[in-house]
């Protein structure tokens, strides 16, 4: 357990509610991508990572990088719900001049790195992990990627590098919801056999139900899985998870919920 020791299931539920309200108010996209990662992010922030919400830049903190920056509302919600900044600031999401941009922004307290273009998080996180090794520091770097994002070659460059340099303080988590921008990953640019690929690139590989907090925490609580190897967690997820009419629907990569849809979604989550 980390220092926060939160009920991560309740944290994830509150994050989903915040995320839905944010994208509804801002008429923003990508709610499906955000709902997909809420359980992973809640487990990291609530149970796994060493964090000090009142000191976002504390030297010994674990570093979290959201490489799929379009899912940012999940992380903004996690940061607000764990005390990095007041929850009322979430109302600024998507407004003119807001630091809470529609792709994750380092101008928000607790955010390490801005992304938005895919394939940037893992090389950057690899640099952080290397720096930690060079400075004999014990903090870890967690990078959360999407499945479609693995089409970017920069990820595979970083995977070769991290294995070559034995960065066992680096963790890549793939949010494997099997859907990308237009259709399924399988029909777009196949990434299978993903576990075999990551293994062949020299990483320690595990697979998990990305909505099961107990199993996520169990795996992420026993890092590194193999000394001298970076860790690659394939988290099987459902895009739009938690809202029945959003689950496994490509359209929720783009649509913003109407008032009626928001009410229905909140109704489901409040009784979850």
């Amino acid at each position: 357990m980390n220092s926060l020791e939160l009920d991560s299931y309740d944290l994830a539920r509150r994050m989903r509610i915040q995320a839905l309200q944010m994208v509804h108010r801002a008429r923003a996209s990508h709610i499906g991508s955000a709902l997909s990662i809420c359980d992973i992010v809640a487990t990291l922030y609530g149970q796994v990572m060493h964090l000090q919400p009142d000191q976002p830049a504390a030297t010994q903190r674990d570093r979290f990088i959201l490489s799929k920056g379009h899912a940012c509302v999940a992380v903004y919600a996690a940061l607000a719900e764990t005390g990095f900044f007041p929850k009322e600031n979430l109302f600024r999401y998507g407004q003119d001049h807001s630091e809470l941009m529609n792709h994750i922004s380092h101008k928000v307290p607790g955010v390490e790195f801005s992304t938005g273009s895919l394939g940037h998080g893992l090389p950057f996180g690899t640099g952080k992990a290397l720096a930690a090794k060079m400075q004999a520091q014990n903090w870890r770097t967690f990078v959360l990627l999407s499945d479609g994002e693995l089409g970017e070659g920069s990820n595979w460059e970083a995977m070769m590098f991290a294995a070559h340099h034995q960065l066992d303080n680096l963790v890549a988590i793939v949010d494997y919801n099997k859907l990308q921008s237009l259709t399924t990953v399988d029909q777009t640019l196949r990434i299978e056999p993903l576990a075999d690929k990551a293994h062949a690139f020299g990483w320690a590989v595990r697979e998990v139900d990305g909505h099961d907090h107990v199993k996520l925490a169990e795996l992420l609580g026993t890092l590194p899985w193999e000394a001298g190897k970076p860790s690659f967690l394939i988290a099987h997820t459902t895009k739009g998870k938690g809202v029945s009419f959003m689950e496994n629907k490509v359209e929720w990569h783009y649509k913003s919920p109407s008032q009626e849809q928001l009410d229905q979604a909140l109704e489901e989550l409040n009784h979850a």
């Binding site: 090389p123 690899t126 640099g127």
Partner: peptide, 11 residues
């Protein structure tokens, strides 16, 4: 280059 940026963010 991404690696360099990550290292630079750590001093």
């Amino acid at each position: 280059t991404g690696l360099a940026a990550g290292m630079a963010s750590e001093g």
